[in-house]
Structures are given as C-alpha cells and as structure tokens.
C-alpha cells in the first residue's frame, strides 16, 4: 500500500498535480556517543526522487495540519498531506473556519493503531494519552479516514507490537478535579511559573493561525508580555479559552512544551465541558456552525442569577 502511494505521489509530483508532499520521514541524527539514530520527523518533499523517505510508524506523532496555515506553505501549490484520523478533525475545523481550501489539499488518510507518547523530546515508551480511548479491542484505532474525507486511504498499519498503555487523560482529569480549588490553583501557579513564553504551544497548534495573536498586541495590551505569574496565567487561560470548542485534542501543545506543562489537562476539560453542555464536538463535521457563533434558546443558565 505504501508502495502504491509512493508511486502515485511520484507521478503527481512529476506531472505537477501537487507541489509538495508534507509527510513523515526519518532522518539520521548524530549522537554524542558517536552512534547514529533515526528520528521520525516531518519531511517536506518537492522532488520525486525523495518520495521514498516517507514512513508510517508509531513515532509519527506530530500533527502536520499545523503547516497548512503557515505563510511559507501557502505558495507551494497543491499539498499532499499525511493525516492520521485524529488529525483529520483539525482539517475539519480549519475548513469550518474557512482557513483552508480543500481543493488545494490532497489528503493521504492513514489507518492508525496509536502513536507513542512524547514529552519534552523524549519517547516515553507508552501510548499517547489520546490514543487509549480511540483504540478498539483489536488494537486498531476506531477512528478511520473514510474515502469521502481523504483522497487516498492507506490501510497498511504500522509494524510493531502494541506498546504498554500509559495513563488515560480522563483518569488524570478525574483525579485533578477531586482536588480542592486552592490546591488546583496552586498547581497551576506552580506549572505556569515554569512557562518561558516561548509560544511553542501556540506555534504547534493547528488552530492557532491568527496573523496577529492577542498575546503579541501592545496597544491595548490585554495580556502582559512578560513571563511573570500574572502574564503567564492570563496567557494560558486565554489560550485555553480561544481553543474552547475548537481544540481537537491532538496533544501537540503538551508534546512540544519544553517545560513539560500539562496543557492537555485544561484542553481536555474544555472538550468534555463543551460536549457535556452543548453536545458539541469540534472537528466532527466541517459544515457545522462554530460553537460560539450559535446558541440554543434552552442553553444552560443555571449559573445565572
């Protein structure tokens, strides 16, 4: 299947039907002890000779949809993109928000059986938190890319046995919510004090595409630019709120955080809240109206006096 894909992509690149392939590849890296290791990372291929670099394995963690809204990739002609079923939801949100032109995309839908958890550049040796719920009893992802959504569906599963399951994010969430509010606040104070404001969470997020982020504005300066407690707290709450009803739970923000702040805890909470209150799931359907630009007459107002 991968071979068919490679042949097809080569043809498409030569004929000019697509301008670039954004996929997963491996590269050799130079280690301090003199050994060479292979690291799976995004590759950007625009020559047919390079197509053989494409791989599909459990280390294909990064959500490549992020690149679609970056300025540099807008001029590359039609883009062929390797998309995991969960990443496809991000494409739906971008379509819903009219940020991408589906016609400019050639979606390579992958069939997934879970990816590895990666945190602070280290493979943690178990499945990513988001995958545990998604996998069915046979160890295959229950989410699949259907031929309607993807231009080509790759049914080959990556090799390798099932790695140990890590902790499910919702069990973390449950435990966290049981803590008294002062403890929760202290926990986040503790976490946000570490924040460097490198904005890796923002850059890696497929939903954070604003040309002018509110965090960069200085007139008016709603969010303090300085990485002190107030500024960091405000930044993270605002980031979470801007993603409410839009976050698809890909976990990129938490993966890329160089200080290991558990951002998915907040995001998952908001995903659950949105589903609980309004029955809304982001990225389910590219045609649905965005959560905050619609309302129902009988929305919950028990909290209003």
């Amino acid at each position: 299947m991968m071979d068919d894909l490679k042949t097809r992509l080569k043809e498409m690149l030569t004929s000019g039907a697509i301008g670039m392939v954004i996929g997963y590849g491996q590269k050799e890296i130079y280690m301090a002890d003199g050994s060479r290791e292979y690291r799976t990372c995004p590759v950007f291929l625009s020559r047919d000779t390079e197509i053989d670099r494409l791989v599909w394995n459990r280390h294909c963690v990064q959500n490549l949809v992020t690149y679609l809204t970056k300025e540099e990739y807008k001029e590359s002609g039609k883009i062929a993109l390797m998309v995991k079923p969960c990443d496809l939801k991000a494409i739906h949100v971008l379509e819903q928000e009219k940020q991408i032109d589906r016609k400019r995309l050639f979606i390579i839908g992958l069939t997934c059986k879970g990816v590895m958890a990666e945190k602070m550049g280290i493979d943690e040796g178990h499945l990513a938190g988001k995958c545990i719920k998604c996998l069915d009893s046979s160890g295959k992802s229950s989410a699949v890319c259907t031929p309607d959504e993807a231009d080509i569906v790759i049914e080959t599963l990556p090799d390798g046995d099932m790695p140990p399951k890590g902790k499910d994010i919702s069990s973390d969430l449950e435990g966290f919510e049981k803590m008294p509010s002062e403890k929760r606040w202290a926990f986040w104070q503790n976490q946000f004090l570490k924040c460097l404001r490198c904005y890796a969470c923002r850059s890696a997020c497929p939903m954070c595409y604003c040309e002018q982020c509110i965090c960069d504005m200085s007139r008016p300066q709603w969010i303090d630019k300085s990485p002190h407690l107030k500024g960091n707290f405000l930044f993270h709450i605002v980031r979470a709120f801007h993603l409410t009803g839009r976050c698809v739970g890909c976990g990129e923000c938490e993966r890329v955080c160089p200080m290991g702040i558990p951002l998915m805890l907040i995001n998952q909470k908001m995903i659950d809240t949105v589903k609980d209150l309004y029955g809304y799931e982001s990225g389910k359907d590219p045609e649905q109206a965005p959560l905050l630009s619609q309302f129902k007459m009988d929305d919950d107002q028990s909290f209003i006096k």
Partner: peptide, 25 residues
C-alpha cells in the same frame, strides 16, 4: 528551514541567545 514552526524553544533554551525586548507595564 522547512518544518520550523516559529516557536522560541531553541532561542529560549540556548545558553548564548541574548535578545531581549523592553516592555512597559
């Protein structure tokens, strides 16, 4: 540079990067 997502991780963790910004609060 293909692939660079434009975050500040490399510069903020770098022991020699020294750029700064001045802001009034």
């Amino acid at each position: 540079a293909l692939g660079c997502i434009g975050c500040g991780t490399c510069t903020y963790l770098c022991p020699t990067c020294h750029c700064f910004d001045i802001t009034d609060e």
